[in-house]
Amino acid sequence: MTAPTDTTGVPARPRRRSSRGVVLGVVLLVAIALPFFRGLPAYNYVLQLGIVLFMWIAMTSSWNIVGGFAGYISLGHNVFYGIGGYLSGLLLVYAGWSPFATAVLAGLFCLALGVGFGLVTFRAHGPAFIISTIALLLMVTIFFDNWEFVGGSNGISMPLPPFPVEWIKVPFYYAMLVSAVGSVYLAYRIAHSKFGLGLRALAQDETKAEVAGIDTRRFKIAAFALSAFFVGVVGAVWAYSLSYLRPTIFFIIGVAANMVLMAIIGGRGTVAGPVVGAIVLIAVNELSVVLFGASELNIVVTGVILLGVLLFFPLGIVGTLREHGKLPAILDWD
């Protein structure tokens, strides 16, 4: 048997197809329809869970652009979360603009900040880069802790959203859903573009990528900036849902660590990985709250899960399944 050949004599190569679009479409429709089912048991809990899940999908998927595709681990990524939250929050407090409108502005502001920070910090590689992102986080924390205009470390409260109380979660739910879908779509587009190919190349061997003709510095800065956008957006939405701005909500390193954990558990550098990681970690978290209450046991359980996953899935769940050719087609988004 011979492979079909075209006129040049080079063998044509088979292409994969899959019907995952249908399945994902149904999942998305269910997510969109969910708030209409007011009669659901624990309606508010389900919506709140959706808000939190979508937020973490958006954050982890965004983090993955720089931390996964480009291979530069950022442990300060929550600065964009906080700055997005503060920017929109302050625009509400002082100008009366709704965070639902200014969240995009917050995202764009974080994108610009990402460019600025990238220009400075991408002279460093490896551990030095990680440390520079922690330094950024510390600096921003100190700044907000001491900025009396926004309440310093005590924070500042925002006006409550002007919605009837029984519907109050719905706009937040949709805002987070749009952010999650948007950030996964962004990651998907990047993964399938030349830009994404360049990021994967430089993640493996920066010198080789440069010599091949890739402007690695520009690529890294672009990746960092793009990865800041949706983190800023969901920061703005989250702040509004709490109606409170305080440095400890946004600027603790645990927030960034969560993005890293979710990405690693799901599969760093894959498109579906952050989604899977966010679902797994949040599910584990909810379950252990139910089983053990909100205690330190929670953290222990999370740690054990992480160890277990990494033992059996060294490249994360999606990454390892793909490596062994066992990834279900509906999760093969790369």
């Binding site: 030349k194 830009f195 190919l197 360049g198 994967r200 190349a201 990528a209 091949a212 003709g213 890739i214 402007d215 690529f219």
Partner: peptide, 9 residues
């Protein structure tokens, strides 16, 4: 992909 990385410009 190794062949085409250089086209990422």
């Amino acid at each position: 992909e190794n062949m085409v990385v250089g086209t990422a410009r």
